[in-house]
Amino acid sequence: MKRALAVDDSATMRNLVKMALESEGFTVDTAENGQEALQLAKKNTYDIVISDINMPVMDGLQFLKEFREMNKRTPVLMLTTETEARKKEEAKRLGATGWIVKPFKPEDLVKVVKRVVR
């Protein structure tokens, strides 16, 4: 069974990602910020990580940077908004596999996830 990590400070978003991926047979862990996510990522191996950018304590880009330092091969999708075009570039530079523009529906998410993990 594939395992995913969903990182977002919004409980609504976290649960949406969880719901969507669980319906595709993933086991989903969640974290509220980059720091929590890093701790989980050190303990467990994930097949995919989906992370918001704007979060307290440690934001998504910093998390991505630190995550990539220890793991180059796990796809990471960033949740962005249309207004964050600049951050998309930054995320790519830091090693993001792709991104999903908010708002999105569960089926959109699943589509993108299937594009990067098999």
Binding site: D9, S10, T12, M13, L16, N54, M55, P56, T81, K102, P103, F104, K105
Partner: peptide
């Protein structure tokens, strides 16, 4: 920044519901 984040999160969540 705190306030920004709250607005940001609310916007994101609302957009999600609106997408339905």
């Amino acid at each position: 920044n705190d306030v920004f984040r709250s607005f940001h999160t609310l916007k994101g969540n609302t957009g999600l519901i609106l997408s339905y």
